[in-house]
């Protein structure tokens, strides 16, 4: 099961155009916020790290990417070192984006 279980619910609730828009914004958010996490670690800026983790948790929560959201919330709570947290978040984010690509492909079978 992908980490985008809630996306199926969104497909019922939204028009195809809105669904593409929301998932497109999610993709942008993931790329922007994982980048922000890396920058924060490089700068040893824990405040910026938590802020980016919070934003990514919210974005993941919105589309039902539960594992990614949980990892972000653990990172916000300093449950794991920042670098380790980023590693896990990166992996889960990549997985979520892959799932998203598959989901969107099913949504629109034309190349």
């Amino acid at each position: 099961m992908s980490d985008l279980g809630f996306a199926a619910q969104l497909a019922e609730d939204l028009t195809p155009a809105d669904l593409r828009l929301v998932l497109g914004v999610f993709r942008t958010d993931v790329q922007r916020l994982t980048g922000a996490l890396s920058t924060a670690i490089a700068a040893a800026d824990i405040v910026a790290f938590r802020r980016a983790a919070h934003g990514l948790a919210g974005a993941a929560g919105a589309v039902g990417a539960v594992r990614l959201e949980q990892a972000c919330r653990q990172a916000m709570a300093d449950a794991v070192p920042m670098a380790q947290a980023l590693s896990e978040i990166d992996a889960l984010a990549a997985g979520a984006l892959d799932d998203l690509a598959v989901f969107l492909a099913k949504l629109d079978p034309s190349p």
């Binding site: 939204l14 929301v22 914004v25 958010d29 974005a59 919105a62």
Partner: peptide, 17 residues
């Protein structure tokens, strides 16, 4: 009132619907 774009766009789309 939402600072995460994904959340904001989702709420907008659902409410407009």
């Amino acid at each position: 009132v939402e600072d995460t774009p994904t959340q904001a766009q989702l709420a907008r789309a659902l409410l407009a619907g």
